[in-house]
């Protein structure tokens, strides 16, 4: 299996303390400064955070970007559906930004990055899907890819049907080679009860900050960790 290295990362969530970690942004309102104001106005807070972090890790605007979110902008989508049901006309701007690839699309326009992008939803298996996609691109010869994992709370009307989730986003640059400061990532098979909680962006943030040793996906029965001793 292709060796996988975490070359750099950034994360955003107001639900954790930075504890001196400068790669974690905990501001309630991320600036969205990487996107011109005429584009930024249509992004929600999560989208602004993601675009800022992408601009940092994709400074050459030439990386392949893979984005996963279990629910996407559920609030916006659901409100539109209720509006349609009430016979109200659909807002073109809201519709445009409700699609699953909206945030990375805006990033592409703002940065001029015209490489491949993917937007994934995987019923709780988002992290495993991202890793599989990333491995594919790396095995195919890409030196590095950028993955984005973001989610926000499920709309209140549907909260009873899905695990609780918090606003959080994490952006990682994964590569085949260990650049200075990179950490090798090992992936292994693992037996897990299917009822095990699915991975959310906050879990990945805790893992990146060494607050947990392993992250595991019950759907794919895979787990990931940073081996203590580098080869």
């Amino acid at each position: 299996m292709t060796d996988l290295y975490l070359q750099d990362w950034r994360a955003w969530t107001p639900h954790r303390e930075t504890a001196g970690e400068c790669r974690l942004d905990t501001r309630e309102k991320p600036a969205g400064a990487a996107v011109p104001s005429m584009l930024r106005r249509r992004l929600n807070l999560l989208g602004r955070a993601v675009c800022d972090m992408l601009a940092t890790l994709d400074s050459g605007a030439d990386s392949i970007v893979l984005h996963a979110s279990r629910h996407g902008d559920g609030e916006r989508t659901l409100e539109m559906l209720y509006g349609l049901n009430d016979g109200e006309p659909l807002s073109p701007a809201r519709f445009g930004l409700s699609v699953h690839n909206a945030t990375v699309g805006v990033y592409s326009i703002a940065s001029g990055n015209r490489r491949s992008q993917q937007a994934v939803a995987a019923s709780g298996g988002e992290w495993a899907a991202l890793m599989a996609e990333a491995r594919g691109y790396l095995a195919d010869g890409q030196p590095s890819v950028i993955i984005v994992f973001s989610d926000q709370p499920v709309p209140r009307r549907f909260a009873a049907y899905a695990p609780e989730s918090s606003s959080a986003a994490v952006v990682l640059r994964l590569g085949r080679d260990p650049n200075p400061g990179a950490r090798r990532l090992s992936e292994t098979s693992v037996e897990l009860e299917l009822e095990t909680a699915t991975l959310q962006p906050l879990d990945i943030i805790d893992w990146l900050m060494d607050r947990r040793r392993v992250v595991a996906c019950p759907l794919s029965r895979r787990s990931w960790q940073f081996p203590a001793v580098r080869p």
Binding site: M38, P89, P92, A93, G96
Partner: peptide
């Protein structure tokens, strides 16, 4: 500096 989506949005607002 408005764009084509703004034009549609503005059309909707005029209608409403």
């Amino acid at each position: 500096g408005l764009d084509s989506i703004d034009a549609l949005e503005l059309g909707l607002a005029l209608q409403k």
